[in-house]
Write a protein that binds this DNA or RNA. Structure first.
Length: 238
DNA sequence: GCGACAG
DNA sequence: ATCTTGTCGC
């Protein structure tokens, strides 16, 4: 069960194999050591910004700027950045190869580390049950929750009424893997994904708690995105 | 064959 | 992800 087994694979085929192992281990990890939202946890967030003006959805070698932050309530307790050229192009289901290494570098430098980490990616909602949010948590040994604008393979209708706090489940083969969560009244809901050591219910609770009624995107992710883009700009790529 | 496809 | 354009609202 060592996290070493989950290190970022050097090929698509290797990643696919790791994902199958990860999916099984994630179920065991959740059963043995479930993370629950209690008290005022430090909630982390991470984001990767790519050079502007590139053609297509991304290539191997693209320059990227990543940022990770940790917030306790609205107070910033830690912040870090990482700059790398990513090793792979973007491909649905294989996002970990492209963004995993740089996110691990950024989040790994956070001191102190967060109690739970929000990642712009899916978790159980994945062709092999192991999206980047879950994978990153396994490697870092940190509970994670995924946040995306839409599902990858899961299905489920959005909440009927866009009132902050409204939720609606999303499923993969009859299994609930996350929830649509309306974080801001009158704004389209986001998907909160069960990740490493987190249930779909905890994912939804965490995303709502980490959001303010004024911003659709959870604060840790919003802050990480801002820091990543600012870093990109200071590098003369924005 | 055609469209869809986390970021 | 990034880009463009348009609309609504504080």
């Amino acid at each position: 069960m060592g996290v070493d087994a989950y290190s970022w694979p050097g090929s698509d085929d290797e990643l696919v194999e790791v994902q199958y192992t990860l999916a099984a281990d994630a179920e065991a990890a959740l059963a043995a050591q479930p993370w629950t939202f209690d008290g005022q946890p430090a909630v982390g967030g991470c984001f990767v910004a790519f050079a502007r003006g590139e053609s297509g959805p991304g290539h191997r070698g693209d320059r990227a700027w990543a940022a990770a932050v940790s917030l306790r309530g609205r107070a910033i307790v830690a912040q870090s950045v990482a700059v790398q050229q990513v090793p792979a192009a973007y491909a649905p289901g294989l996002l970990a190869r492209r963004e995993g290494p740089i996110l691990q570098a950024a989040v790994g430098d956070l001191r102190p580390g967060p109690d739970v980490l929000l990642v712009d990616a899916t978790g159980l909602d994945h062709p092999r049950g192991a999206g980047l949010a879950l994978h990153l948590g396994a490697i870092l040994g940190v509970p994670t929750v995924g946040v995306t604008h839409r599902t990858l393979v899961a299905s489920g209708a959005v909440p009927e009424h866009l009132r902050r706090g409204a939720t609606a489940p999303v499923y993969v083969r009859d299994r609930c893997v996350g929830y649509w969560v309306c974080t801001k009244t009158a704004a389209r809901a986001v998907v909160a994904h069960a990740g490493w050591r987190t249930s779909p219910e905890t994912a939804a609770e965490t995303v709502l708690a980490a959001s303010s009624s004024r911003a659709r995107t959870p604060l840790p992710l919003r802050h990480a995105r801002r820091v990543a883009r600012t870093t990109r700009a200071s590098a003369g790529a924005g």
